[in-house]
């Protein structure tokens, strides 16, 4: 392979890697968009990002590849997951569109935009590839460092300011200023007595310790679930699981198992007819 030709093409290994991982990345991206649960979306995105990190490495951007994994996949995606947990892991979105025509417009715009981008890339004469080897001759990290601390030093400094601002901004946004002193246990107890509602502590959630049982409402004596037993946050998220049907199902399963063990046949209404037929 002549050096010139090397500039135009990549190695077969890289090509193989591209086609395989590229496909996976696209699938990951699609899953990010299409998954119902935010957790799944986040995981798919993390996968796509890791693949992108691999592509960075393949393109000679070793520093960025590592940063991608450490910062993006490691920090940012974890932050996402953290927020997802805060909002509710199990909450599934409906993918049904509520704004009329939004989906078709979005798809049309997306398709049009994609076609245009492809056309633009295809239209550009991108035949010259210098390769990154020359630039990475003194090591990728060293090369980047020399650029960042010389040519881009101001941008870099401003970036620092931006990060500080963002951190402070995030704190300001999420910080809730207390306007009054937090109530003590004693005061809360007095308030409860004064209101005359729920004098005792709130009832415990359901007793079916099969899942994270805090989201299962406890049953009242008459068998109806009481929402009071469920944590307020879960109540507001609408993540209460109704297990009344489950309980019946379980009961039926229990009965069936008992019958099987006792080898008792099910009494069917039809069996009453047989003796009559036999007597005939």
């Amino acid at each position: 392979m002549s050096p010139q030709l090397a500039a135009y093409t990549t190695s077969t290994g890289e090509a193989f890697q591209f086609w395989v991982l590229g496909t996976v990345a696209v699938i990951g991206a699609l899953c990010t968009v299409l998954m119902k649960k935010a957790v799944h979306s986040a995981l798919c995105l993390a996968g796509t990002m890791i693949i992108l990190a691999v592509f960075y490495l393949a393109n000679g951007a070793y520093f960025l590849g590592v940063v991608q994994i450490v910062v993006y996949t490691g920090a940012i995606m974890m932050l996402f997951l953290f927020v997802v947990m805060l909002v509710g892991v199990t909450a599934a979105d409906s993918l049904k569109e509520t704004i009329k025509g939004q989906r078709w417009l979005a798809l049309l715009c997306g398709a049009g935009f994609g076609v245009l981008l492809f056309a633009g890339i295809g239209n550009a004469s991108l035949k010259e590839f210098d390769g990154i080897g020359q630039a990475n001759a003194n090591g990728n990290v060293e090369g980047l460092a020399s650029l960042i601390f010389t040519k881009y030093v101001f941008a870099f400094e401003i970036t620092g300011a931006l990060l500080i601002t963002a951190a402070v901004g995030a704190m300001v946004l999420t910080h809730r200023e207390r306007t009054e002193r937090a109530k003590t246990q004693r005061e809360l107890a007095e308030q409860r007595v004064r209101e005359g509602k729920h004098l005792p502590p709130l009832p415990a959630p359901g007793v079916y310790a099969r899942h994270n049982a805090v989201d299962i409402a406890g049953l009242l004596p008459d068998g109806t679930p009481s929402e009071l037993t469920v944590n307020k946050t879960l109540r507001e998220r609408g993540q209460i699981r109704d297990v009344s049907a489950e309980a019946l199902g379980d009961l039926r399963a229990l009965e069936q198992r008992a019958e099987e063990r006792l080898e008792r046949t099910e009494i069917e209404p039809a069996t009453f007819k047989r003796p009559e037929e036999a007597s005939k």
């Binding site: 939004q102 417009l105 715009c109 049009g112 935009f113 633009g120």
Partner: peptide
């Protein structure tokens, strides 16, 4: 989201115009 569609559509039109 509707506004975002218009923005995105506008961006697409800009790209188209540039091309």
């Amino acid at each position: 989201r509707s506004y975002a569609v218009s923005m995105f559509g506008g961006a697409a039109l800009l790209v188209a115009a540039t091309l």
